[in-house]
């Protein structure tokens, strides 16, 4: 059994490696480790990579002037508390991502996929930088620190951080094919669930005409996270094709339970940080939304839905997807559109 679930770290140069495309694999491939991007096995990679590159943005593009006023004047006490804690949580999540993605990448033996993860890692850095930008603009230095290190005083927060962290450490301590799929799914949950409720909170402020600059930055982060989510979905699905034998009923139910547990925790977290104090949101809405997210995340990687019903976006939350789509927002005809892309990806065929 031990041998069956063995997971090899990818090496450096492997002169005796196989040069055929078929030798490439998500993990345990036998290629030369030369970056051969002319012969790509995973076709989705090239589109994904181009898309991710052209999404490049920096937070300074967004004007935060109104947010400075809003933060002091328009936010209610409950809203400011949630704002701080949600931001704090996102800071934690992105920090964790930049640290953990390289751990996963150590085992990814398909170079093209490995490239994507590197790029994701870089984007997570930009996200961290944009939280710094937000804090820098709206807070004084002491407030800033109390937000970043909030977990030192907030035991509920700390517990949650440790739980998420634990899932990642399991893999570091004992890397094998089973713990690998578990860490992939843990990452997928982090991208597809934990981030999303945070985003949703900021969009809700935006829809109440508060902290629109933050919402704009979050929209950009969200767009990247959508991409990251699809990257890990693809990795999971390819991995599944290549290691069918791993996906026993038992493993699948472990994975489903992971998602379920994450949803339950997320709902509790929602109660803790949003509760019934925030205009535009209430506990039922949060519950419905998280259950719905849990279900689509599970089904899109081939697992069974986790919660009965909850297969469609709840009507009370349909505003979230409207607010999250960058492309749907037309600034004034003569405003600065955030839609414009970077011309570095433009194919020069003149």
């Amino acid at each position: 059994m031990e041998e069956n679930i063995k997971l090899n770290k990818k090496g450096l140069f492997n002169p005796s490696g196989d040069i055929s495309i078929n030798a490439k694999a998500i993990v345990n491939g036998t290629s030369t480790n030369i970056n051969d991007l002319n012969n790509i096995k995973y076709k989705w990679v090239s589109n994904w990579y181009r898309q991710a590159i052209s999404n490049f943005w920096i937070p300074e593009e967004v004007n935060m002037n109104q947010d400075i006023k809003d933060y002091r004047k328009s936010l209610t006490i409950a809203e400011r508390r949630s704002y701080n804690k949600t931001l704090s949580f996102l800071i934690y999540l992105d920090s964790l991502q930049t640290l953990n993605l390289p751990n996963i990448n150590e085992y990814i033996s398909a170079q093209e996929v490995s490239f994507c993860i590197n790029l994701q890692c870089f984007q997570e850095d930009i996200h961290s930088q944009s939280y710094a930008y937000i804090l820098d603009t709206i807070c004084s230095p002491d407030e800033r620190n109390s937000i970043i290190y909030d977990f030192k005083n907030d035991s509920i927060m700390l517990k949650r951080y440790e739980f998420i962290n634990g899932k990642y450490e399991e893999f570091i301590d004992n890397p094998n094919l089973i713990s690998f799929i578990k860490v992939l799914v843990a990452n997928y949950i982090l991208e597809g669930l934990y981030f999303y409720t945070g985003f949703m909170f900021f969009y809700n402020l935006g829809r109440n005409s508060k902290m629109n600059g933050t919402a704009q930055i979050i929209r950009k982060v969200n767009k990247d996270e959508n991409n990251h989510l699809s990257l890990f979905k693809n990795i999971i699905l390819e991995f599944k094709k290549e290691h069918k034998e791993i996906f026993t009923l038992e493993v699948e139910s472990i994975l489903e339970n992971m998602i379920k547990e994450a949803c339950i925790q997320e709902i509790e977290w929602g109660f803790y940080i949003i509760g019934n104090e925030i205009r535009g949101l209430n506990i039922d809405m949060i519950k419905d939304y998280i259950k719905y997210l849990g279900n689509i995340r599970a089904t899109s990687i081939g697992l069974k839905p986790i919660f009965e019903g909850h297969l469609k976006e709840p009507l009370s939350m349909s505003w979230v997807s409207n607010f999250s789509k960058d492309d749907y927002i037309k600034l004034d005809n003569y405003g600065n559109s955030s839609l414009y892309s970077k011309s570095s990806t433009l194919k020069d065929d003149l």
Partner: peptide, 17 residues
């Protein structure tokens, strides 16, 4: 139309179109 449904952002408000 730019899209069947979109928002216009005006003075901190998102106006659906």
């Amino acid at each position: 139309l730019l899209s069947k449904f979109y928002f216009e952002e005006e003075a901190n408000k998102m106006i659906p179109r």
